Measured scan of single mutants.
Amino acid sequence: SDFTIRIGDRTLHLKNVSEEILKILEELLRRGIDFEELRKIVEELIK
């Protein structure tokens, strides 16, 4: 499924993301992860 994360004025667009990855990202966001850290993790996950 497609997913968009907005943190402040920044946006991260994800396409064809599995439910498992979404759950991980949601947990990281709940813990207050930094946007740049989140972006790096996402890039690793979707390689």
Rank of each mutant, 00 (worst) to 15 (best):
I7F: 07
L25F: 03
L25S: 03
I41E: 12
E19H: 12
L22A: 13
D34T: 13
E44T: 10
E37N: 08
I41N: 10
D2H: 02
L45I: 09
R6D: 15
F3H: 09
S1N: 14
E19L: 08
R10W: 06
L29P: 02
L25I: 15
T11I: 13
T11Q: 06
L29R: 03
I5D: 01
E19G: 13
E36W: 06
K40N: 11
I5S: 00
I21N: 15
N16K: 03
N16R: 02
E20I: 04
E20T: 04
L25Y: 01
R10V: 13
G8Y: 02
E43I: 08
R10A: 10
I41L: 09
I46T: 14
F3Y: 11
R31A: 12
K40L: 14
R30S: 12
L38D: 01
K15G: 06
I5C: 07
L38E: 01
E43A: 10
K15Q: 08
V17F: 02
T4R: 04
V42A: 14
L29G: 04
E20W: 03
V42G: 06
R39A: 14
K15S: 12
L12A: 00
K15D: 04
G8P: 01
R39V: 15
K47T: 14
L28I: 08
L12I: 12
I41W: 04
R39Q: 15
H13T: 08
D2N: 02
D34R: 07
R30N: 13
L12C: 02
T4C: 12
R10S: 11
S18E: 05
L12S: 00
E36S: 05
L45Y: 07
N16Y: 04
L29N: 04
D2V: 01
R31Q: 13
K23N: 12
R39Y: 11
F35I: 06
N16P: 01
L25V: 15
K47G: 14
R6P: 05
L29I: 14
T4M: 09
S1F: 15
G32A: 06
R30G: 08
L38Y: 03
N16A: 04
L25G: 02
L28P: 02
V42W: 03
V17E: 01
V17P: 10
L28N: 08
E26G: 05
L29Y: 03
I5W: 01
G32W: 02
L14I: 10
K23D: 12
R10H: 13
L28V: 10
L22S: 11
K15A: 07
I7G: 00
L25K: 00
L25M: 04
I33G: 08
R10F: 13
L28S: 09
L28Y: 11
D9E: 09
I7H: 01
K40I: 13
R30Q: 14
E26R: 10
R6W: 10
F3E: 03
G32V: 04
L12Y: 13
I7N: 01
F35W: 05
L28M: 10
F3D: 02
D2C: 14
E27Y: 03
E20L: 03
E26K: 12
T4P: 02
R39N: 13
L22R: 15
E20H: 07
E19A: 14
E36V: 07
D34H: 08
G32F: 02
F3I: 15
D2E: 07
G8L: 01
I7W: 09
L22W: 07
E36I: 04
S18V: 02
R31W: 05
I33Y: 12
K23T: 12
D9N: 10
S1W: 15
R10M: 13
I5V: 10
I5G: 00
T4S: 05
R39P: 05
R31G: 07
R6N: 15
G32C: 09
E43H: 10
I33D: 08
K47P: 15
E37L: 04
E36K: 05
K15V: 12
S1H: 15
K15M: 08
L12W: 06
V42P: 00
L29Q: 06
R31K: 14
F3M: 14
K40V: 12
